[in-house]
Write a protein that binds this DNA or RNA. Sequence first.
DNA 1: AGTGGGACCTGTCCGC
DNA 2: TGCGGACAGGTCCCAC
Length: 268
Amino acid sequence: MPELPEVETVRRGLAPTFEGALITKVDQNRADLRFRFPDRFAGRLAGRRLTALSRRSKYLLGDVDSGEVLVMHLGMSGSFRIENDLAGQTPGRFVHARGKDPTHDHVVFHLETAGGASARILYNDPRRFGFMDLVSRAALAEHPYFRDLGLEPLGNDLSGETLARLFAGRRTSLKAALLNQKLIAGLGNIYVCEALWRTGLSPERPAGTLVTKTGRPTQKAVALAGNIRETLEDAIRAGGSSLRDHTRADGTLGYFQHAFAVYDREGK
DNA sequence: AGTGGGACCTGTCCGC
DNA sequence: TGCGGACAGGTCCCAC
């Protein structure tokens, strides 16, 4: 379930349990997802504390007190869920929930939370397009995953000015340009469609036509920058979009899919 | 530089 | 009820 708003929703759902937790054990149930796990993946995490959980583009980043960062990408079908042993909770209550086939639980983080409770965070990914890695914090920015990533659309960098700079001279379509993670990082099919619709722009229009001859942003470019930000913020506020019964880490559903103006509305 | 195709995987849905 | 095909929120790689 993974464009930027969904990943941010996952981050917010996991943070109260994951941040500050001691990782007592990691079950790694297969050698690879999209890529092989790094050597000694489980061993390098066990006994360490996860100090902070952040996000860059569609990546979740867990700071580990070893100086490494746990890099996680959800691919197309990755999701997390939390299980804990608090009174009143049936262990594994989400395991048999719809769409939660336990055979696709590829990683289990066993935790002692900052509050002293025991909990587990499980990573489930039927299609296995997601992946996890461990990268030293110092090398993160130059790592191939992040080296070429474009600007963060919710940061302060996205504006009509920056869109004009990124789009100048490009004959590729707006749709392709906005999906290009080297320009803006975090948009996918749904939110590109929605942001273009809100701006009244055709996805087929060449990106370079949003730039004047002097390299200034057109009015549409300024509006598009604002609409990208607003669409993402609206979606995060709604808890992301829930398609095909994908649930959030707490088992609840995001509801932004009800606000789609264009995605999955062909012919309407 | 851009684009079209195929690849990686499994689950679900639709039409017959 | 069963089967085949199309399709899915992501990305990479290659040929042109």
